[in-house]
Design a protein around this nucleic acid. Structure first.
Lengths: 72, 72
DNA sequence: TACAAAAGAGCCATATAATGCACTTTAGTA
DNA sequence: TACTAAAGTGCATTATATGGCTCTTTTGTA
C-alpha cells in the first residue's frame, strides 16, 4: 500500500517552508531515518509519526468523508 | 500520544452505518483485535491500518492545513 | 432481571516500524 | 567539472503493531 497523497502533503509543505529533512526530523522529534523512509515511499508510518511530522509543519491528520460527487 | 479525533471519526462513522467492530474488521481486512485496540484508544496504528479502515467506511486519511483563523 | 450481542482486555507469537550509523547517490553551484 | 549539501539506502537492534484465541465487561432489550 502506498500513501502518495500523505507523502506529497508533507514533502510539499516541507519544501515550501524550505526546511531540510534533517531539520524537520529535529523539529518533529521523528528520526531522520524514519522521515527519509517515509518521504521516499518506503514506509508504513504509525499515526504517531505522521502526527508529529504534521504538527511540525502545521498539518493535521484527519479523516475526510470521501465524496464521489463534490458537494457544493 | 492520543488520536481522539481520528478515533472519533471512525467510531462515529461506523456507528452511523450501524456496523459492528467485527463486520468492519472483516470488511476492511484489519484484525478485530487491532480495531478494538484502536477504538478504545490503546493503539498507535499504522498508516496502512488507518487507510484500510477509512476505505471501508468511505473516509480518506489526509493532512489538512491547520488554520487558527479560518480562511473563508 | 436474564439473556445475547457487542465491546474491551490479557496473553502470546510474529512481523515490522523506529532509529542510529555509515555509505552512496543526486542536485545545485562556483 | 569539482565540491557540497541534501536525499536515499543497507544493516543491525530495539520497540511495538498486528492479530488470533479466550475470557470479562458492557449494553441493549424482552
Amino acid at each position: 500500500m502506498h500513501f502518495s497523497s500523505l507523502i506529497q502533503s508533507i514533502k510539499e509543505r516541507r519544501e515550501m517552508l524550505q526546511v531540510t529533512q534533517e531539520t524537520l526530523a529535529d523539529l518533529s522529534g521523528v528520526g531522520l531515518r524514519t522521515l527519509k523512509q517515509f518521504e521516499s515511499g518506503k514506509g508504513n508510518p504509525t499515526a504517531e509519526t505522521l502526527t508529529k511530522l504534521g504538527n511540525a509543519l502545521g498539518l493535521e491528520l484527519t479523516f475526510q468523508v470521501k465524496t464521489t460527487t463534490p458537494e457544493e
